[in-house]
Every structure is written in structure tokens, then in C-alpha cells.
Simulated assay, not measured.
Amino acid sequence: MHKKILLIITFLSALFISGNLYAQTAPPAAPYTATPDSFVPDISYPFLQKLIDTAKKYYPEVRLRQKQVNIANTSYHQAQLSWFDIITPSYLYNPSQSTNLITPIAANSYQLAVTVNLGSLISKPFIIHNAKQAVDVALYQQQEYMLTLEATVKKLYFTYLGLQADLRLRSKAEQDAGVNVNLMKYKFTKGEAILKDYNDAMMIQYTQVSYRIQGELAVFNAKVNLEEIVGKKLEDIK
């Protein structure tokens, strides 16, 4: 029994040591290298930052979040000033025939009386605390939305560039299909190709034209989506 346990421990130790040795000797991952058809070289991080700053300035939801913060601040200040609401002043009239055996009061005079609402006095600190918490909540929601907005702008920008790269590939495929059609037409007139080969080349060209149009539509839609959240046309952002 002890021999079996010893063998198991030895086997697990060997696996652990071999794993560490592999981790130490394994070559580091090769850095990403953009291919000629990649959209990565098109990325401009300064321009992307301008897009983010513009979105934070012009997108209506940003102004809405700021309004919510302002309203919460106003409510908090109102709650702080509402301490005076718990005090109710009143005046007591003392006619000449009335007498006060405890505290003499001048005849035909008025006396100021102050009434304090005990329930409001106890609840007022909690009301102010909740108003301050509402300010914090509005600020946290504003910060969360700013992070979400920034991530959304980045995603839409990268999507826009990716679709532009895809459109370039589709346009290149369309050009190649056009060259092939001209070649097959030349061969067909020379009797070096049959009609079917010529028709197949034309169908491929038609398909590539359709793909290119779909790519253009995707690029324009991506541009509209990006401009919608930025709040301005891309051409107007310098």
C-alpha cells in the first residue's frame, strides 16, 4: 500500500517538474503582425480619442446624465436647508385683562412661541443622508455610462475600419473578376474557350459586383452608427 502511494507521489512530482520546465523553455508568443489586407494600420488612436471626446460632449444621453446629477445635488441642498421646516413659530396675544402668575407679561402685548416637530427632528438626518446617497448614485451612474460610451465608440470605430478593409478586398475581387471576363472574352473570340467558360466568368463577375455593393452598404451603415453616437459627421472632426 505504501509503495503504491509512493509511486503516485513520484509520478505527480515528475509531471509538475516537467510542466515547469516546459513553461520555462517554451518560446514566447510571436507578436501580432498585420497583413497587407489588415485594417490595423488604419487605426488612428489620436482620432479615436477625438471621437470619444466628441461623443462625451454632444451625445444627448451624456447631457441627460449630467442633468440627473444636477437634480440630485439640488435635492441634497434642499434637504440640508429644510432643517428650518421642523420649527413652527407662532405669536400669543396677551390682552390687558389676562394675568400670568408665573411669568409676568406686559398688558396688550405679543409673545413669540416656537414649536418643534419631534418626528421631523428625528427623521431629518436620515432624509439628508438619503439625499447625499442619491447624489453618489447619480455620479456612479454617470461614470458607468461614460465608460460604456467610450467602449461603444471604440467598437463602432473598429467595426467601421474593418468593414472598409473588407470592402477593399471585395473591390479587388471584383476587379480580378473583370480581368478574367475580358480574358475569357478574348479567348472565346479566338476560339480558345467555349461559351460556358465565358458565361461562368461573367456570373463570377456579377457575384463579385453584388458582394462589393453589399460591402459598400455595410460601410455606410457602420459610418452612420458611429456618427450617431459621436454626434457629428466624421468629416467634421479634425
Rank of each mutant, 00 (worst) to 15 (best):
2 H>D: 03
4 K>W: 13
4 K>F: 11
6 L>N: 03
11 F>P: 04
14 A>M: 13
16 F>D: 08
17 I>A: 15
18 S>D: 13
20 N>F: 15
21 L>T: 14
23 A>M: 15
25 T>L: 12
26 A>Y: 08
30 A>P: 05
31 P>M: 09
31 P>T: 07
35 T>A: 15
37 D>I: 06
37 D>R: 03
40 V>K: 04
42 D>K: 00
43 I>E: 01
43 I>R: 00
43 I>C: 01
44 S>C: 02
44 S>L: 03
47 F>A: 08
48 L>H: 04
50 K>V: 06
52 I>S: 02
55 A>N: 05
57 K>F: 06
57 K>M: 05
60 P>E: 09
60 P>R: 09
61 E>G: 09
61 E>Q: 15
65 R>P: 01
66 Q>G: 08
67 K>I: 04
70 N>F: 07
70 N>Q: 12
70 N>D: 08
71 I>Y: 09
71 I>G: 07
73 N>V: 04
75 S>G: 10
75 S>V: 02
76 Y>Q: 03
77 H>I: 08
78 Q>P: 03
79 A>F: 00
82 S>N: 00
83 W>T: 00
84 F>H: 00
86 I>R: 01
91 Y>M: 11
94 N>K: 14
96 S>F: 07
98 S>D: 13
103 T>M: 06
103 T>Q: 06
104 P>S: 03
104 P>R: 04
105 I>K: 10
106 A>P: 03
106 A>H: 07
107 A>I: 05
107 A>Y: 11
111 Q>W: 05
113 A>D: 14
115 T>N: 14
116 V>E: 01
118 L>S: 12
119 G>K: 07
120 S>H: 02
120 S>P: 01
123 S>V: 01
123 S>T: 01
124 K>P: 00
128 I>K: 00
130 N>C: 00
131 A>R: 01
132 K>G: 07
134 A>M: 01
135 V>Y: 02
137 V>A: 03
138 A>K: 00
141 Q>E: 15
143 Q>A: 15
146 M>K: 06
149 L>W: 05
150 E>N: 13
151 A>E: 09
152 T>L: 10
153 V>A: 07
159 T>V: 07
159 T>Y: 11
165 A>Y: 08
167 L>Y: 08
167 L>S: 04
168 R>N: 10
170 R>E: 06
171 S>Y: 11
171 S>H: 13
172 K>N: 09
174 E>P: 04
175 Q>S: 10
175 Q>V: 04
176 D>T: 03
180 N>A: 07
180 N>L: 09
181 V>Q: 10
182 N>Y: 11
183 L>M: 07
184 M>D: 05
184 M>Y: 10
185 K>R: 15
186 Y>H: 14
191 G>F: 10
194 I>Y: 08
195 L>N: 06
196 K>R: 13
199 N>Q: 03
204 I>P: 01
205 Q>L: 07
205 Q>A: 05
206 Y>S: 08
206 Y>A: 06
207 T>G: 13
207 T>F: 11
209 V>D: 02
210 S>V: 04
210 S>C: 01
214 Q>E: 10
215 G>S: 08
217 L>M: 09
219 V>Y: 12
220 F>N: 11
227 E>D: 06
228 E>S: 14
229 I>W: 06
231 G>S: 03
231 G>F: 04
232 K>T: 01
235 E>K: 13
235 E>R: 12
238 K>S: 04
